[in-house]
Amino acid sequence: MTPTSLPVLEYLQRQLAGTLQPGDTTHVRYPTAISRLLGIEIIEVAERQAAVRIAADVELHGNQQGTIHGGLLCELADAAIGTAHSTIIEPGESFTSLDLDARFVRPAWSGTLIATARCSHAGRTISHYHCDIRRDDGKTIATVTSAVMTLRGEAAAGR
């Protein structure tokens, strides 16, 4: 079978629907290495939007106080935001985060955490994202914003 290179959004939508065919690929790496390591999975995707989840465990992801570490929450938000932005990335383009601003609202312990990211401003080069992270009781534990820069031409080479 001849490999088919799909746009990122179509690839991820097919992956979620279970309709990827053997040999289907995209130009962006999915799943990412860090997502495989931490067990982060994509659960929803649309243009410039994504939701990811993790089965958080204080024995693996905890801090000194016995709650889920803020660094894991930042990584979860970054995964959702990166997935959302990747849906508009064309072959030969790449992207990078310019910042990540986290506001922690309440603690989380072991359980399912879901990060939902959406674009709040879609620019040609710089786009802004908002991400809410909720624990399995539906309560928001953190809100995260990020600016993401799309790289083209030489800036994207080798990325």
Rank of each mutant, 00 (worst) to 15 (best):
P107R: 05
R134Y: 09
H69K: 10
V58N: 00
Q15L: 15
R152Y: 02
K139M: 11
T67M: 09
G123W: 06
G92R: 09
V58R: 02
T150M: 09
G39P: 05
S146A: 15
I126E: 14
T67Y: 04
T112F: 03
T32C: 08
T4I: 13
R159Y: 10
E59V: 10
L73T: 03
Y11V: 03
F104N: 05
V28P: 01
E44H: 09
R152I: 07
R152N: 10
L151C: 08
G66A: 11
I34C: 11
P107N: 05
L113Q: 00
R29M: 13
T87E: 04
D78Y: 04
T2K: 15
P31D: 11
V105E: 14
I133Q: 01
S146P: 06
T4G: 04
Y11S: 02
V148C: 05
T140A: 12
S86H: 06
T125Y: 02
P22G: 08
S35H: 04
A122E: 13
R36I: 10
N63K: 10
D136I: 05
I68R: 01
P22N: 07
D78L: 11
T150I: 08
R36M: 13
A122S: 15
H61Y: 03
T140M: 13
G82H: 03
L38R: 05
A51Y: 00
R48I: 06
E41F: 10
L72A: 05
H85L: 06
L72T: 02
T2R: 15
R118P: 01
I114F: 06
T143A: 12
E10C: 05
Y11W: 09
L72N: 01
G66F: 07
A56R: 00
L6F: 01
T150Q: 09
S35M: 11
F95Q: 02
R53G: 04
L38F: 03
I42Y: 03
A79F: 02
A157R: 14
I141N: 00
C74F: 12
L37N: 12
P31H: 08
A56C: 09
A142L: 07
P3K: 08
V144G: 00
A84Q: 01
C131I: 03
I42V: 15
C119I: 11
N63T: 06
A157Y: 09
L38Q: 07
A155W: 03
M149E: 12
V148S: 02
T96D: 12
L60G: 04
P107T: 05
E41Q: 13
R152M: 09
T112S: 13
E90L: 12
R118L: 10
V52W: 00
A17S: 10
V105A: 09
L60Q: 12
R135Q: 13
Q49T: 14
E10I: 05
S97A: 15
S120Q: 13
W109N: 11
A155P: 07
T2N: 11
H130E: 09
R118V: 09
A84S: 04
L12R: 00
E41C: 11
G66D: 06
R106K: 14
T87Y: 02
A115S: 05
T32K: 15
T145A: 07
L12P: 00
L16N: 02
T32D: 10
Y30W: 15
A102C: 15
L12E: 00
A77R: 00
E75H: 11
H85D: 07
G18H: 03
Y129L: 01
L6V: 03
